[in-house]
Amino acid sequence: MNTYQAQIYVTLRPSVLDPAGTAVQSGLAHMGYDNVEQIRIGKYIELKLTATDEAAAKAQLDQVCDRLLANPVIENYRFDLTEIFRYGRSSMNLASLCFLAPTAIAMPQWSCAICSISRRA
């Protein structure tokens, strides 16, 4: 099983009014930032999950978003998915091995949980 880090963005559908966004926009205008427009406030959700491969992880995330994290009546969602690379059986996160750059660069896809750098295939 692989471990993935997901970053999920839930946003209001364009047809839905966002009174909170409008209020924040008028706040910014009062501060003098009157060149700011179309503020839309959404939600950002992070989670980790394990799955056999990226396709399975994406399929499950779609389900989770459709069923609970977003309400399809009023919201859209999108997500970024990154595999968290674990070194062999020791389950050591690549974070601790960041200085082994040549090894890391040879891997098709990895991320470092500490310095938050990543490489995607």
Binding site: V16, L17, P19, A20, A23, N71, V73, I74
Partner: peptide, 17 residues
């Protein structure tokens, strides 16, 4: 009931917050 799908639509923040 709207979240569960028994009724259509959704209830959102009041217009004036």
């Amino acid at each position: 009931l709207t979240e569960s799908g028994l009724l259509p639509g959704a209830l959102m923040r009041n217009r004036d917050l």
